[in-house]
Design a protein around this nucleic acid. Structure first.
Lengths: 355, 355
DNA sequence: CCCTTTATATAAAACGTGTTACAACTCCAA
DNA sequence: TTGGAGTTGTAACACGTTTTATATAAAGGG
């Protein structure tokens, strides 16, 4: 017990103390602990001594000193609209797998679709010296940061941004041919909010596929989530089915001449179903409803949701992989856009079109 | 344009360059920019020159150097089981408000209820030099870190942890008197998973309140989320109503002699309702269901959920406030436990007990 | 015997701040 | 003249790493 200084718990032991204790120089200790290539010449015996002492004294290199020297933080910034379960959570489950495997942590910044925050957060995180950015579902055409950027579902046109996107054409094809084969011809569409990048690409795919399968698009049957007396500015709660309830209600007040509706996401679909039910219509008896995303509770609603599943976890994983590669090798050529495949999940909310 | 060095974009301008440009010492510049008390003697004219140049040259103090010197990171670690919308997202909306106001960012670490991660993450984040910890819904009795800790819904017994908890007695009282006044006498309970701290406290409150209102608790009507052929180890998806579906199913196979069930959370309630429906029972016609949390979609289910609302955002806000105070003043006395009030929200899933 | 190589290790610089102690200069009264 | 007090600043260190360049002794080659 009488080990002198060592028996008293060292507030924190740093490299200098460790070196003094070992009667070696800081250089030697540092080289050994970092497995530096120039440490090859150090004999095994010395290395063992160093490692053993580091463990015994519970040496932890100071994060700031190390980062200052190496100018990298081992952390990335994640920019997202919100912390929704429908999107954020599932993408992040993939992201986290990759990041922790590489000893990376992440800062989250939610911009809530506010323009100033979308511009401010990247700057603030650059000041925090993040090594890279992950953009989730966030418009990013003029992002200008000195580190690699990977965008998921952002369709960024920026020069140095790697895009990870869903194959919207395939997604829409699956949904519409499903409805078409059930006999639906008058199909309504609930488009996504203008702010969300996917909205535009989804809609373009809808127009294209409609033409391909010879389906007529009636402008009167096209509604938007961010209209009908509600907009993103009123405070967008990604998990509030209200976003689908109100537009659906508005459409029903104008016309009931349709037999199906394709919603921008599952939450909106839930709201839409509630609105239909409140109007005395049955789903799928009178109206079939298709959602998007396949959130975890989609199978448990009444009726359970037919929906297009996005491989969000895989998209997150892939995005993080690419980002880490680009961080590790800053000079590597920019990988091209990465396109992921959707999957239609058929449940109770769709059925044959009524006569 | 021919300004010499200044016309070429400075890769990054640091204090030395700024000082050279101003023909002042780094000390002076630093003192001015930090509004240091010992800068009182510096004349206003000089200060203005410094500030103006700093803005013009877009000077940003190096985060690592500054943190190394001041040994604080302006970031906190958030430890949570997962990124669920029911809990995490809502608490964090309050937390973020406070943190960003104080120029703090946060690292998120999800332990997925794995013992090793619950122990490892605090250590890893301490190495990252976080200035404090926020524990969400996470058992933390033996957390040992050199920085302040605030626990939300964790009921920690640790000496240096500030607890923020819901008033479970009041919550249970509201729910049970509601059911009781509707005529329910045989009430089933779906208890939370053993791993979640609230589970135990909720159950204790249930036993106490039952006694107070003279309600008999039948052990045969008490089921747990983490039993009935399903456990946390199978992979806990906080938004998967499956967690409520299976236990409900198991109970129904044994008995139907009850008229109401009080579920641990809304997600479980959704699963339970689905199981009841799949067994040919109607909600609330045959069975009334009460949830907990009041998640955003609770009002949009069919039937919409009667539930006990937790003021999660407020709890997050309060927790972050306390944490920031404790960080700013490390010697201040530990504030006592903070108790928040719940609110019963009555919707469609509860009704009069059948005869 | 001299010169090079190898093995083992180290001193010192660098990263960019914040801060402590002190220097020069002026003014003013004793 | 001198000493004290204010004014306006600066030199130098500390924070804890990583890395570059270098030192010393022993071994080996001619």
């Amino acid at each position: 017990m009488a080990k002198g200084k060592l028996s008293t718990p060292p507030g924190h032991v740093n490299l200098r103390m460790l070196a003094e204790h070992l009667e070696l120089s800081q250089t030697t200790v540092s080289l050994v602990l970092n497995n530096s290539p120039s440490a090859k010449s150090i004999p095994q015996e010395t290395r063992d001594r160093v490692v053993e002492a580091a463990n015994r004294l519970n040496y932890r290199p100071n994060y700031f000193a190390r980062s200052l020297r190496q100018s990298r933080s081992m952390s990335v910034g994640v920019l997202a609209p919100d912390l929704s379960e429908g999107y954020f959570t599932r993408v992040m489950s993939g992201v986290v797998q990759e990041l922790t495997g590489a000893h990376y942590f992440y800062f989250t910044a939610c911009h809530d679709w506010k323009k100033d925050l979308i511009e401010k957060y990247p700057r603030m995180l650059v000041e925090r010296a993040v090594d890279g950015f992950l953009l989730l579902n966030t418009p990013s055409d003029n992002i200008d940061v000195p580190v690699p950027v990977v965008a998921i579902s952002a369709h960024s046109a920026s020069e140095n941004v790697t895009n990870i996107v869903l194959d919207h054409h395939q997604a829409v094809q699956q949904a519409l041919t499903h409805l078409y084969s059930l006999g639906h011809r008058r199909i309504a569409f609930m488009r996504g909010p203008r702010a969300i990048p996917d909205s535009e690409f989804r809609w373009e795919a809808i127009q294209q596929v409609a033409q391909e399968i010879n389906l007529k698009l009636d402008p009167a049957l096209s509604i938007r989530i961010d209209s009908a007396g509600w907009s993103m500015k009123d405070g967008y709660h990604p998990m509030a089915p209200e976003i689908g309830y109100k537009p659906m209600q508005a459409l029903l007040e104008k016309t009931r001449d349709f037999t199906a509706i394709f919603c921008f996401n599952d939450i909106a679909a839930v709201g839409a179903i509630r609105a239909l039910r409140d109007s005395g219509l049955s789903v799928p008896g009178d109206i079939s409803v298709v959602g998007f995303d396949d959130i975890l509770s989609a199978a448990y609603y009444t009726p359970s949701l037919t929906t297009v599943r996005q491989p969000l976890m895989e998209m997150g994983k892939r995005g993080a992989q690419v980002l880490l590669e680009r961080i590790a090798n800053r000079e590597a050529p920019l990988p091209p856009e990465i396109i992921m495949a959707p999957e239609l999940v058929i449940r109770e909310s769709t059925g044959p079109a009524p006569q």
